[in-house]
Design a protein around this nucleic acid. Sequence first.
DNA 1: CGAAAACATCGTACGGCGTTCGGAATATGG
DNA 2: CCATATTCCGAACGCCGTACGATGTTTTCG
Lengths: 255, 255
Amino acid sequence: MEYAGRGDPARTMALLWDGLPTPRRGPRQRLELARIVDAAIAEADRGGPGALSMRGLAQALGVGTASLYTYVPGKAELLELMVERVAGTLPAPDGAAGWRAGLRGVATADLAAFRAHPWLLQVATSRTVFGPNVLARYEATLALLDGHGLAAMDVVNCVAVVESYTRGAASAVVDAEQAPAATGSSDDEWWERQVPFLEERMNGRFPLFSALEEAGAFAVSDAVLPYTVQRALDRFAFGLDLVLDAIAARVAPAG
Amino acid sequence: MEYAGRGDPARTMALLWDGLPTPRRGPRQRLELARIVDAAIAEADRGGPGALSMRGLAQALGVGTASLYTYVPGKAELLELMVERVAGTLPAPDGAAGWRAGLRGVATADLAAFRAHPWLLQVATSRTVFGPNVLARYEATLALLDGHGLAAMDVVNCVAVVESYTRGAASAVVDAEQAPAATGSSDDEWWERQVPFLEERMNGRFPLFSALEEAGAFAVSDAVLPYTVQRALDRFAFGLDLVLDAIAARVAPAG
DNA sequence: CGAAAACATCGTACGGCGTTCGGAATATGG
DNA sequence: CCATATTCCGAACGCCGTACGATGTTTTCG
């Protein structure tokens, strides 16, 4: 897990809101902050776990490793800038079709973001990145539930539930998508190698599991994607409806 | 993120179900598998992120680093053994007081496990650890929802939703608990250093957020724990009720 | 009984990581 | 024109997981 909020808040805030200060002396800067952040995002997206390294990033930018530290205090702050930048690329929460469609849109966009940028799941959430895009997105998400008769705290909590659920379910999706690259074997290969041992060990010991499997409880909606990925996506959709139903019951208790 | 299911399934399965094979020749083994796994769990629990290292573990056990590799193929398999062992320590799902209390118990136990063993959140879920304790726990959790009129797939999916939500919400709790150690500054210190810059940047720009804050939407139920931790715990409880409500609506659609 | 096979132990090395240090190069302000 | 501020960056520090191979130990079998 990577943690934000580590360094000097003044410097971090300045980077988030104003970008780099333009120096008055010394050699020209060979890079721009936006280019560094974009390259870092690309680097982190490309590879599996821990794919972003300061060395790799510097090489991708054609610069010595240590030079990066004249732009950014360290990797933690770079991650904050990456989060802020991604937040700026997401579709804005839209309440035009009602709060339910709006919240669904936010969760769907978040899932897409997690899939496109798996490293987002490794950034701790407790020390919020107080960048303009992040804050604006949060404000707009809260607005979806405002004015529907919910208490102030319930508005905040319902948004938090959707976020938590999305994070948990997205984590399963991303796990499934990254497993082949991380382990060096596809789902099918892995499963085929497990089957003989599973049959030997599980045989008859877990009757309910077997019965549910027999009844098709582990089937997936489509066979285009790898099984574990599609299963995780199906479950995400199922659970999102469940959560939104529960919020609907709170919004209009009388049904 | 750490991935299981990497090595030879035969060897991994044998370790999970049977433990170490007893060698017939050669010097006595100075360690037992259980001792290694326990020490690994303790080591991983103690420190912050990435606290478990093969060097550190070997030192704690009074053994050379390379010796560990005669017991366990690598760190990935060791992690599987750790997961399996923790699964064995959790209270068994209990349906005596109804499915709702049972599911709540599972989620609560999972949260407690994530808090006690934060590294569990870093173990990918897509390649299940097929150990006896893990499987038994899953079987018993499914049993909580069996026989209440849900379709087979809905049983599995509802359990998955609870798991996903718990994982996401627990992640927020654990983030909050680990942030001080990981960043070297307490919540209060961090917050105090943020405030002046936040006031400067946010001033008037996010009216709904400000209004909700004014209305106490970010208050917490108790001031014993650090603020971000308590807030995450409050939100966990709120959302768990929400999710269970939604499942209840599926179980008894007519209300 | 002695030799060979099987096995555990572990120092060392490899290539990676984030970050720091200090010297060299370069542009500006006075 | 020179002092100052700044960038650039090679090298080094102390970590990481793990492969290799030498060495020592125990059992088995001829």
